[in-house]
Simulated scan of single mutants.
Amino acid sequence: MSDEQRHPDLSFVVPAANETRWSDLLASLIATDPAPIKELVGGLPDAVRREVTVAGQVARRSDRLDLLLLRDGQQLAMIEAKVLADLGSQQLARYEAAFPEAEARFVLHLGSLPLSLMAAPRWRALTWEDVLSAFSESDHPWVAATARAWLRQLDSLVPRVDAETVWNDVPDDAAGFELALRTRVAWLASRMDAWCELEHDLEQSSGGGAWVAAIRVPSSSLGHKVIVEIQEGLPAQAWRPNPALAYRDRLPGPVVLVGLSQSGVITSADFDWPLLHQLFRDRIVDDSGAVVDGRAWQLTSANPRDAVDRANWQAIVAAGAPKWIGKGYGMATARTHAVCAFGARIQLDPWSTLGEIDAELQALQALIIEMAESVAS
Rank of each mutant, 00 (worst) to 15 (best):
A134K: 04
D86L: 04
A163K: 08
F135V: 05
R160L: 07
E164W: 03
A120P: 02
V170P: 04
K82H: 11
E103G: 13
L132F: 09
R94V: 11
V143G: 04
L154S: 08
W128I: 08
R160K: 13
W123T: 02
R160S: 09
R94Y: 04
W123M: 02
R160I: 02
K82R: 13
I79Y: 12
E96Q: 15
G176E: 03
L110N: 13
R148W: 01
K82A: 07
A174I: 01
G111N: 01
D173N: 15
R152F: 02
E164T: 10
P100V: 07
A104I: 04
D130Y: 02
S112G: 08
W150K: 06
E164I: 01
D130I: 00
L113Q: 04
M118G: 14
A134R: 13
T146P: 00
V158I: 15
G88L: 08
V166W: 09
D162E: 06
L115F: 07
A98K: 14
T127N: 07
A120C: 06
Q153I: 05
A174S: 07
A174G: 01
V161D: 11
A120I: 04
P100E: 12
K82C: 10
A125S: 15
R122D: 14
S133N: 08
Q153H: 14
R152S: 11
W142K: 12
P159H: 11
I79T: 07
R122T: 15
L117H: 06
F106M: 09
L157R: 14
D139F: 01
A174C: 00
E101H: 14
A163H: 08
V158T: 14
V170A: 05
L157C: 01
S89A: 07
R152K: 09
I79F: 09
E80H: 09
Y95D: 10
A134E: 09
P141A: 14
W123K: 07
A163G: 03
A147S: 12
E103A: 14
A174D: 04
S133H: 11
L108Y: 10
V158A: 00
V143Y: 00
E80W: 05
Q153T: 09
A104W: 02
L115Y: 05
E80V: 12
G176I: 08
W167L: 00
R148S: 13
S112T: 14
L132S: 05
E129R: 01
A163F: 03
E80Y: 09
L151A: 13
L84C: 03
R124E: 11
D139K: 12
N168H: 13
A97Q: 15
W123L: 01
P171G: 08
L115T: 09
Q90N: 15
E103I: 05
R122N: 15
E103S: 11
A149Q: 01
N168D: 09
A144R: 12
D173Y: 09
R148V: 02
F106Y: 15
P141E: 14
P114D: 10
L115E: 03
L117V: 02
E96H: 10
H109W: 00
P171M: 04
